[in-house]
């Protein structure tokens, strides 16, 4: 059993296994061991803030204090009246382990990093839940959209982390070449919309009604690729 609702299949996917591939028992046992180490050592932290979206036009998003030029982000935030900025990290103790394994034993390093990737993704899911709870019913979230996706410039990392005061709050920093340090971290802009404004669906099988009909049952977009039955 994986800690923290981590999914072994996802970890295998990061390691290059396709659904049909049968993993070696030694690899599975290493995944289990590395997951145990991470669960014990990680010190995840997150910070988020929600801002009103002043306007989304062709190719740009106006947040009042900042205008982001990105067609893909604008498309992602269409119909959203607010946007959440999120920064999350597994912390610098995890980074130390990453670097230690890379130096000492690469088989551990690659497996540990795959476990880290799954861990930070699940942790971000948890952060989204937190945002959702804070917003209350009637609101939906668009998928996480990070600087570097599509034409959303990586340079926006600076502003995003600055606005969140992420270095001070959770120790998440940028290198000169815009890499995040610690590396096992995620930043994202998440569109927030009123469920009534988005009859077309959320893009990934979320509950849009906010009426407690959890899952996809209440959503009108029946041909959604992410629809869960």
């Amino acid at each position: 059993m994986m800690p923290g609702e981590w999914r072994q299949r996802e970890i295998l996917r990061y390691l290059g296994y396709k659904a049909k591939d049968v993993p070696d028992p030694a690899v599975l046992s290493l995944i289990g061991e590395m997951a145990g180490v991470l669960a014990e050592q990680m010190e995840p932290g997150r910070v988020f803030r929600i801002f009103p979206v002043e306007g989304v036009k062709e190719g740009q998003v106006d947040l009042g204090f900042s205008v982001i030029h990105s067609r893909d982000l604008a498309k992602n935030l269409e119909g959203c009246s607010q946007a959440a900025f999120l920064a999350a990290t597994l912390g610098s103790r995890t980074e130390r382990l990453v670097q230690r394994y890379r130096r000492m034993q690469m088989s551990r390093a690659v497996v540990f990093e795959a476990v880290c990737t799954e861990a930070i993704e699940r942790y971000c899911d948890g952060c989204e839940e937190e945002i959702r709870r804070m917003l209350g019913p009637g609101w939906g979230l668009r998928p996480r959209f990070s600087p570097g996706y599509g034409d959303f410039p990586l340079e926006y990392q600076r502003e995003l982390l600055g606005v969140l005061d992420a270095a001070k709050r959770i120790g998440l920093t940028l290198t000169d070449s815009l890499l995040m340090a610690p590396s096992k971290s995620v930043t994202a802009v998440i569109g927030v919309y009123e469920a009534a404004d988005m009859p077309g669906g959320c893009g990934r099988g979320e509950d849009l009604t906010g009426r407690g009909a959890h899952g996809c049952a209440g959503c009108g977009k029946e041909d959604c690729a992410y629809r869960r039955n």
Partner: peptide, 13 residues
């Protein structure tokens, strides 16, 4: 004096 806002080597640059 607060922190620089960057992570020191070997964790950062």
């Amino acid at each position: 004096i607060g922190p620089t806002g960057k992570l020191l080597k070997p964790l950062g640059d």
